[in-house]
Design a protein around this nucleic acid. Sequence first.
DNA 1: ATAACTGCAAACAATTTGCATCCTT
DNA 2: AAGGATGCAAATTGTTTGCAGTTAT
Lengths: 152, 152
Amino acid sequence: MESREELTSVLRNKGFRLTPQREKILDIFYTLPEGEHLSAEDLQNILRRENSDISLATSYRTLKLLASLGVLRELAFAEDHKHYELVRFESGVQHQHIICVECGSTEEFTCVEVFQTAVEIAQSHEFELIDAQLKLFGRCKRCQDKTSNLPV
Amino acid sequence: MESREELTSVLRNKGFRLTPQREKILDIFYTLPEGEHLSAEDLQNILRRENSDISLATSYRTLKLLASLGVLRELAFAEDHKHYELVRFESGVQHQHIICVECGSTEEFTCVEVFQTAVEIAQSHEFELIDAQLKLFGRCKRCQDKTSNLPV
DNA sequence: ATAACTGCAAACAATTTGCATCCTT
DNA sequence: AAGGATGCAAATTGTTTGCAGTTAT
């Protein structure tokens, strides 16, 4: 997905339709700062704020569809709901996430080796590689400080 | 968690109790072949098969507890339920997963660089590192073959 | 015209929780 | 004895689905 305009052809190629809802949702992802990801609920909040009334069911359906088309990437963090982010090929190197298991905050980082490693491993397992995600779990600075101040 | 016996002290240190249920569940994980992971439902099935009647609620509570104690690692794959596996320090290098998004099957691989990379990145982000997971998503050989036989 | 799409509400699956009872410590 | 743990059932959360009406192609 190099540009927003491509969505039309990606959809049509598979017999899907371009609806205002799908356009709007993709729009929101394109407007997001690079590296930011949304849960279905986050998305609903943004839509509501912008007075776009798209039902929750449609949001879920659209997120799934766009993920299956490779437009969005589905992310599972520590929480029990999924997040989605734009797959951006332009930047070349995908960013990865470091997640605080205590407060749920995430930060992005990039790691050039991940992709090369992934390609090699997928090859040796005869997998057709779709995506590689390196996730680090830990406690962020703020949460570390919080605990160290607590009485023992 | 170097040995099963340590569980007692790990629990007691934090004021938790050693119950037959917790022992049994940990036992099951120790009996598993290295690298194997269970969902709460998998665990229930094994328990039932062995005539250990532990309620589902207790299984969930125990999995969460052991994960929070660092005894088990919580894994989120493509499906919408979690998996758990033993954290084995003995082996030094943690294994990672390659997951087929079509049939859900997983294979393990090891990658020595992951840990070193993780340590460096955590440091630069001031995170206290707990775990690093490299996940590859793709389509396994079997599913590739399946599709290529389909009529277009 | 006709399939695909949407919104709604009901259904589901995975997980959590309140509470009475039970059992480690 | 006392507080943590369990089992049960009810509640919650995140997500999916059936269906009737709507809309892109």
